[in-house]
Amino acid sequence: MAPESRTVETNLSRVLSSGGFAVTGELGPPKGADPAVVRDKARLLRGSVDAVNITDNQTAVVRMSSIAAAALARDEGLEPVVQMTTRDRNRLAIQADLLGAWALGLRNVLCLTGDHQTFGNHPTAKNVWDIDSIQLVKLLAEMRDQGVFANGEALEGDPPRFFVGAVESPFADPVAYRPFRVAKKVRAGAEFLQTQCIYNMEKFREFMARLGDLGVLDKVHVMAGLSPLKGPGMAKYMRDNVPGIDMPDEVVERMTAAGAGIDDKAERQKAWRAEGIRLCVEQIQQVREIPGVAGVHVMAIEWEEAVRPIVEGAGLLPRPEPLGAAAEG
């Protein structure tokens, strides 16, 4: 059998492979079972993004299942990217859940290692990591191309042919190794790649150039991860506490300056947020100029309403007409 990719077309894959500049968003499922929370967030994102990542127990905090929330978001007219970490499930559970995801009409999967459970709200839990994120990429690529499970056994019927994504944190240590790791993920079968939040454009340019040197840019669609800042506090927190975030001091200073002289707390917050949106718009314009960047992944954490003004401000509206629910049946 020819080893070429047999991925079905998804809205995201179509925008990326047509050479358009793709936009994805992020939707964190609730710490509860109310579907209305997912639907409300989905409505805020609809029309502004080509697809939306549905996080999987993000930061190791228990939330509604990413697959269930993805199905709810899909019903609201969004195309989901199901995030799947290898922290909570072994290879049996991962495959079973993804067969179910496919059966529900979900077509994009993003493979992640997952944050360590000691950071979450069940720190005494046992972790799994039976496989890692790169092995998960390879598993899905083999399922797609050869119709087999991880053990080599053939699936019954048509196999899931997910559009397979991976992630990279360009500035996490060891920094020199990161482009090499991207190449490894591409070799494993990743078709698109979303990065950790970028604030240092200079260094991101170098990272992309290195990917070019390694010859992977024509094999994978790279989407720059951007996260609008809500204020200087968030900028400082990310600078000081989040591994892999390179937060230049001028960004912190710019966010601080945005609220300077404003005494009213609500007004100050409004000014910060407006600046955060402006900065994100500028960042989109900057990454668009970097060779090989195929789109942006906008992570407006618990701030979904920021996505439309950001995407609009960047001149990326309207989005291409989605394949949408009609194509999914």
Binding site: D115, D132, A172, D173, P174, P243, G244
Partner: peptide
């Protein structure tokens, strides 16, 4: 995380 394919994104300053 007992990873077999390289460092995760949580590595910082070694």
């Amino acid at each position: 995380k007992s990873l077999l394919n390289g460092p995760c994104g949580g590595s910082h300053d070694g």
